[in-house]
């Protein structure tokens, strides 16, 4: 088991959140917002793309949310939250100036150093774009370190697309291939309708399978089908990285909730190479 990249300072109580304030809020879709958080005291929580924070709403509870911002400034955090449960509903309803507790960062991020000199294929489904956005912003800031960069993104419908401003910007970059597809649309949508795994066939000439690092995040079924398409084209299992989601109460490897086989998703993940997941990937309800 690897050490988490964020070793806690000795003696600190890892259960106590650090105070942050909402400094900005952007509505992404009907049920999803992006919160910008800032430490009032200038505390910073240096993170890597793919890691996550535990966000705490006073008196309500705590949830793991991936970082989706660029790790350039560690005192500003961006988190995209979908209102589905009691805590995320409250998070999504926070306003500018509201207090939020933050613990983290936790877990293993995307293998961006490993990907240097390689083609990079980012495959996102739904809210899975949030953790990949952080990786992409980092990659674009150091674009010359990578070969071809391709982003495939599938959403439920045009109204469910996240980060529209970013998508427009990315669409215009000559050094980035972005393909967007939706599951359903009306006749006003002029883009692709279909599923993300099917996009891989369209871009198969834009990556060299054995020199490609694939970063995949989305619902489990979408990831399963994506992995198969990548394997069919010869991308090795140890270069396919997935970000997994599990119930988490502590994020410290202590509460036992996030186990997947021998792994604790909170510390061995959330980003893991498929080669480590493969022995258990066909086992249901593991």
């Amino acid at each position: 088991m690897r050490e988490p990249s964020s070793a806690p300072p000795p003696g600190a109580n890892p259960y106590i959140p650090v105070p942050f304030r909402v400094s900005g809020r952007r509505r992404e879709t009907a049920d999803t917002v992006t919160l910008r958080l800032r430490s009032p005291t200038g505390d910073s929580l240096p993170f890597k793309p793919g890691q996550f924070m535990m966000l705490y709403v006073f008196g309500v509870g705590e949830v793991p949310i991936s970082v989706s911002g660029r790790p350039r400034r560690a005192d500003i955090l961006e988190h995209t939250v979908r209102a589905v449960g009691p805590v995320t509903r409250r998070l999504a309803a926070l306003r500018r100036g509201d207090w939020v507790g933050v613990r983290g960062p936790f877990g293993q991020g995307w293998p961006l150093a490993l990907a240097e000199g390689f083609d990079v294929l980012l495959v996102a489904g739904g809210l899975g774009l949030a953790p990949l956005r952080s990786a992409l912003l980092q990659i674009l800031a150091q674009r010359d370190r990578y070969r071809r960069v391709t982003v495939l993104y599938g959403a439920r419908s045009p109204a469910d697309l996240l980060y529209r401003l970013d998508l427009t910007r990315w669409q215009q970059r000559p050094d980035l291939e972005l393909r967007v597809t939706v599951d359903r649309a009306d006749e006003r949508w002029r883009g692709q309708i279909g599923v993300v795994p099917a996009l891989i066939a369209q871009v198969e000439r834009q990556f060299e399978p054995t020199r490609t690092v694939a970063l995949v995040c989305g619902p489990e079924v979408m990831m399963r089908f994506t992995v198969r398409e990548l394997q069919k084209r010869g991308v090795p299992d140890d270069l396919i990285y997935l970000s997994l989601e599990r119930n988490m109460k502590c994020a410290l490897g202590l509460c036992g909730h996030c186990q997947f086989g021998p792994a604790f998703i909170c510390k061995d993940g959330p980003v893991m190479p498929f080669s480590r997941l493969a022995p258990f990937s066909e086992i249901r309800e593991l």
């Binding site: 008196g59 509870g61 202590l254 036992g256 909730h257």
Partner: peptide, 26 residues
């Protein structure tokens, strides 16, 4: 068996809250 969960309990005024840990059952 060490697994635990946490819950948050808030007083009626909503000004004081505490985080409580309980052993949990898989």
């Amino acid at each position: 068996c060490f697994c635990f969960t946490v819950e948050d309990r808030t007083d009626l005024t909503g000004t004081v809250t505490e985080r409580v840990r309980r052993l949990d059952v898989c």
